[in-house]
Amino acid sequence: MLGFYKERQGRWISGVFAGIAKRFVWDPKWLRALFLAILIFVDHKFLLVLAYVALAYFLPYRQTFYAERYGTGPRKRKEAEKIYPWQ
């Protein structure tokens, strides 16, 4: 999902803003303040809260995101035949 994920460290509710802030190297406090300001001044509060709940449900945690993207466990070397120059 475009490289977005939730973050377990620094989260308040579900980690959505902490993950987005970490992705763009922002401070999560400013992102939360922006969300609250928009929530106060917008008429469609239900849609904004619904979007947050949808992100909280569908975004994976960072650890899961990287495990699916790059795999887990130690790297494996390919088994290859040894090449001897004297043969």
Rank of each mutant, 00 (worst) to 15 (best):
L48W: 13
G19Y: 00
Y52R: 02
A33G: 04
V25A: 14
V25I: 14
K76E: 12
Y84P: 10
K6S: 01
A80T: 04
G71W: 01
L36S: 09
W12R: 15
K22M: 05
I38T: 07
L47C: 09
K76Y: 10
R8S: 13
W12T: 13
P85L: 09
W86Q: 11
R8Y: 07
A21G: 00
W30T: 08
D43P: 09
Y84L: 12
G10A: 04
V49S: 11
D43I: 08
E68H: 08
A51I: 15
M1A: 11
D43C: 05
A67M: 01
L34F: 08
F35V: 00
K29F: 06
W26Y: 08
K78E: 11
L48K: 11
A33T: 09
S14P: 04
D43T: 13
G73R: 13
F41P: 06
Y61H: 12
A21H: 00
P85C: 04
Y61I: 01
F35M: 02
I38F: 09
L34Y: 06
A18H: 00
F65P: 00
P74R: 15
L34E: 05
L2V: 05
Y52W: 09
L50N: 11
E79F: 13
F17T: 00
L36I: 14
K6I: 01
Y52D: 01
R69Q: 14
E7V: 01
K45P: 06
A18V: 02
I40D: 03
L59P: 03
P28K: 03
G71E: 01
F35D: 04
V42M: 04
A37M: 07
L47D: 02
I13E: 08
K82A: 07
